[in-house]
Amino acid sequence: MPQTCDIEAIFRRHAQTVYRVCYSFMGNAADAEDATQATFMKLVDHPRQFASEQHEKAWLIVCASNLCKDTLKSASRTRVVAMPEQEPADTSASEPLDATLDAVLRLPEKYKDVVYLHYYEGLKTDEIARTLDEKPSTVRNRLRDARGLLRKALGGEA
């Protein structure tokens, strides 16, 4: 159980997880790396102790998710960067993606964290709700809608 903020150990434990979350939001490697580093940098700037590795992981996922949302919101306001939801294919030109990943990246922002937590981390609706501080019904609805969009994108029935 980690009790101190050993940034190297935490980074080695969760770098891939945080990067996946960031990539699912940002849609390209460069921005995802920046967001990943910024997420861990928050921990450097404001060290904290976690009750468990699971708590540590949940905090990092939520932190990365919020940071990416803020970055995308800021980018859309300043119109410096195109919205990844609109043009994720541009970034994939040099990074070939499969159809499923492409479909995941094209999901609207509000579905991305619940989809990641459910399909990759394997969390149940109630756990996702607690992690994201949302109502379970909200999480259920989002998962249902996201599933429909993915089925549609992947050629199955919506």
Partner: peptide, 15 residues
């Protein structure tokens, strides 16, 4: 199937 497919897709994202 969908769950497995999405899980595999996330696996491809690697730092």
């Amino acid at each position: 199937q969908l769950a497995q497919q999405v899980h595999d897709a996330y696996e491809k994202i690697e730092l």
